[in-house]
Simulated assay, not measured.
Amino acid sequence: MARNEQEQSAGAGGWLPEAGPIVCCITGDAALRDECARAAAVAGAVFEGVPSVGEDPQLWTRADLVLLGADISEVPPQRRGPTILVGAASQRHLLWDRAAALGIDHVAELPDAAGWLVDYMGRRGSEGPSGVVVGVVGGCGGAGASTTAVLLAGAAAHGGARVLLVDGDRLAGGLEAVLGEQPLEGLRWPDLASAHGAINPEQLAASLPRAAGAGVLSWPAGPRPAVRVPGAAISGVVEAARAAFDLVVVDIGRGREGIEDFGWASDRILVVVPGTLGGALSAAQLVHELPPVPLGVVLRGGTGEGVDAEQLAGLIGCPLVARIPHLRRAAAAAEWGRLMELARSGPLRRLAAAVCEALPERAPAASAGDGPALALGARLAGRGRRVAR
């Protein structure tokens, strides 16, 4: 549907908002344009579809979001807004190659990733810039995903970003235990179990504990049963967190509950694996259970003789985002509640840099200045990318 047709429909009492984000789809594939148009309509976005960039060059810079078909091999360089490469599952290898060549942030296989695409476009139309939600999951047991999530959040906070660390594994005993010798003061998940409707982002941020400059939302560290929080409450909290923070890092855990509650709310997921063949094989099975969002591998520790990090990532089916050497002090630091102190180490700063891109400008917070937020961006695209299924 062309933009002027949508505006006429809105003026005649149609349900589409008049001020929705402008989504431009550039592809010579008419069926793919129709697929993207349906997703845009559901998201309440203004849709414009053209067969090539030359058809309307201004759209490339004017659109809030560009959906680029896999048949488009050349694009102008001047674009600051997000671009998503779209295509069919049968074009998977072409999509990978094209994303790497063009440095595109996201890849979506349609129709399987239509739901994710609708959600992404919907957030583009929300008031104010939206933070990035990065999920962290262990590719196998004992991979160190929780440690990685904590240190990633700490590294981003040290860099000036407004960060929230979320404990998404209800049965892990409380992530707050590794963040301080004394209990943190502020709200925890049980306090938010009865939340419903829209949650005020500023009030949420002000009510949460803080550790090393990052907000923390954890399950209580203690022997009492951790009663499950309703999905509606979790969704409301995550959406409020998007508005209040630049970056939300979620320790998802390997259980289905965490994946269902937080995996689908993530913009991208980091899969943490040790440098072993067994760990990679386990992770390769896990990724089939993850939602259709961009995935990347973080390799912890060294690799065995004859084992290559890139090959392990290839076996898993995700690009290698970063490698973290074995941190000898991590176990003791976690035991004493001082894990965040290791976030300033060189390997963690490099991990942050490997997954860091600038966010849209937003008003400075009272307690922190603007800063970069972690995202899987052009660095990841340059190495190839696992596409949204």
Results as ranks from 00 to 15, higher is better:
Asn4Cys: 10
Gln8Phe: 05
Gln8Lys: 13
Trp15Pro: 09
Val23Glu: 12
Gly28Phe: 08
Asp29Met: 04
Asp29Ser: 07
Ala30Lys: 09
Arg33Asp: 10
Glu35Phe: 15
Ala40Lys: 03
Ala45Gln: 06
Glu48Trp: 05
Asp56Met: 11
Thr61Asn: 08
Asp64Val: 04
Asp64Ile: 05
Arg80Pro: 08
Ala88Trp: 15
Ala89Gln: 11
Trp96Pro: 01
Ala100His: 02
Val107Met: 08
Leu110His: 00
Leu110Gly: 00
Asp112Ile: 15
Asp112Tyr: 13
Asp112Met: 12
Ala113Asp: 02
Gly115Tyr: 15
Trp116Ile: 14
Gly122Trp: 07
Pro129Phe: 13
Ser130Val: 08
Val137Phe: 02
Val137Cys: 03
Val137Trp: 00
Cys140Met: 12
Cys140Glu: 12
Ala143Leu: 02
Val150Lys: 05
Ala153His: 00
Ala153Asp: 00
Gly154Val: 00
Gly159Leu: 06
Gly159Met: 03
Leu164Asn: 02
Val166Phe: 02
Arg170Asp: 04
Leu171Gln: 12
Leu171Ser: 13
Ala172Val: 05
Ala177Gln: 09
Ala177Trp: 10
Gln182Leu: 14
Pro183Ser: 05
Gly186Glu: 05
Leu187Ala: 15
Leu187Asp: 06
Pro190Val: 09
Asp191Ile: 00
Gly197Ile: 07
Ala198Lys: 14
Ala198Tyr: 10
Ala198Asn: 11
Pro201Glu: 06
Leu208Val: 01
Arg210Met: 11
Arg210Thr: 09
Ala212Ser: 11
Ala212Arg: 03
Gly215Thr: 01
Trp219Asp: 00
Pro220Ile: 04
Pro223Glu: 07
Arg224Val: 10
Arg224Ala: 15
Val227Thr: 14
Arg228Gln: 11
Val229Leu: 01
Gly231Met: 08
Gly231His: 06
Ala233Thr: 01
Ile234Glu: 09
Val237His: 04
Leu247Asp: 02
Gly253Thr: 01
Arg254Val: 09
Gly258Tyr: 09
Gly258Leu: 13
Gly258Val: 14
Trp264Ala: 12
Val271His: 04
Gly275Tyr: 03
Ala280Met: 04
Ser282Ile: 09
Ala284Asp: 07
Gln285Trp: 08
Val287Gln: 00
Val287Ala: 01
His288Arg: 14
Leu290Asp: 05
Val293Trp: 04
Gly296Trp: 00
Leu299Met: 14
Gly302Arg: 02
Thr303Lys: 04
Thr303Phe: 05
Gly304His: 03
Gly304Pro: 04
Val307Tyr: 04
Ala309Met: 08
Ala313Pro: 05
Ile316Phe: 08
Arg323Lys: 10
Arg329Ile: 13
Ala333Tyr: 03
Trp336His: 14
Leu342Asn: 05
Leu342Ser: 06
Leu342Thr: 07
Gly346Arg: 12
Leu351Gly: 02
Cys356Thr: 15
Ala358Asp: 09
Pro360Tyr: 11
Pro360Asp: 07
Ala363Gly: 03
Ala366His: 04
Asp370Tyr: 13
Asp370Gly: 08
Ala375Ile: 13
Leu376Asn: 00
Gly377Thr: 10
Ala378Asn: 07
Arg379Phe: 02
Gly382Phe: 09
Arg383Gln: 13
Gly384Met: 10
Arg385Cys: 08
Arg386Pro: 03
Ala388Glu: 05
